[in-house]
Amino acid sequence: MLVLDGADRVLQTYPVGLGFAPEGHKQFEGDGRTPEGVYTIDRRNPNSTYHLSIGISYPNEADIAFAEAQGLSPGGDIFIHGGPRPGIDPTNVRDWTAGCIAVTDREIEDIYAMVKDGTPIHIFA
Rank of each mutant, 00 (worst) to 15 (best):
R106H: 05
M1D: 01
R33E: 03
I123G: 03
I121M: 03
P22E: 08
A67Q: 06
A69T: 07
A113L: 05
A98E: 15
Q12K: 15
T49Q: 15
E23F: 15
T119N: 06
E109S: 13
G76R: 03
T49C: 01
A67E: 10
A102T: 11
I54R: 01
S73Q: 13
D63F: 14
F124T: 06
G76V: 02
G76W: 04
S57F: 10
Q27P: 08
A62L: 00
V38I: 12
R85M: 15
T97G: 03
F66G: 09
P59N: 12
S48M: 02
E36I: 08
P84E: 06
H81Y: 04
S73G: 04
D105P: 02
P35W: 14
H51L: 06
P59R: 13
A113Y: 07
E29A: 14
L2Q: 13
Y58M: 04
A98M: 14
E68A: 13
S73E: 14
H51Q: 12
I54A: 03
Q12H: 15
T49K: 14
S53C: 09
H51C: 02
H122L: 02
E29M: 14
V93S: 05
V93E: 11
P74R: 11
D110I: 05
P86A: 13
T119A: 13
E36A: 08
D42I: 07
G99P: 11
G24D: 09
A113R: 09
L52P: 03
E107L: 00
T13V: 06
D8G: 05
K116M: 05
H81Q: 10
V103G: 04
G83S: 13
P59I: 07
P86G: 13
G19N: 03
V3Q: 05
P84M: 09
A125T: 02
H81K: 10
D63I: 14
N60W: 12
I121K: 01
G37V: 01
G99K: 08
A21D: 09
S73K: 11
G37Y: 07
G30N: 08
L72I: 00
D8A: 13
R94F: 10
I78L: 07
E107C: 02
S53E: 12
G55C: 00
I78F: 06
G71D: 02
F124C: 01
K26T: 12
V115A: 00
L18W: 08
I78D: 00
H25S: 10
V115D: 02
T91M: 11
